[in-house]
């Protein structure tokens, strides 16, 4: 089963505690379940405020799963691993 690549955008703000934790949590999940089947883009909105407007970001950290469809938005530091897996539809 040719699996589609996962594309994530993670919005963080600088090096805030929650942002760093979110990056760590996401990396753990991806390494454990998706190995090389993912693209991760991390956007620091303190430097790219216009992107925050574009992607309708108000909470930090926010993870957007761009593909595969459907598009999902996850708010929080991704510490609730089972919930993250369920929402991202990762086995």
């Amino acid at each position: 089963m040719a699996e589609e690549k996962y594309k994530f955008i993670l919005f963080v703000s600088g090096m805030s505690v929650k942002s760093v934790r979110a990056v760590e949590n996401l990396k753990l999940i991806c390494d454990a379940h998706l190995q090389d089947r993912f693209d991760l883009e991390i956007i620091d909105i303190t430097k790219n405020a216009d992107l925050a407007v574009k992607y309708q970001i108000f909470a930090i950290p926010t993870l957007i799963k761009v593909s595969p469809a459907p598009l999902r938005t996850l708010v929080g530091d991704l510490s609730d691993t089972p919930k993250v897996l369920r929402i991202l539809d990762i086995a």
Binding site: S16, A59, R72, G76, D77, D80
Partner: peptide
């Protein structure tokens, strides 16, 4: 469209 998966703040806002 939004799911909460832990702690967050409204820094984006």
């Amino acid at each position: 469209e939004i799911d909460e998966t832990g702690e967050y703040d409204l820094e984006g806002l």
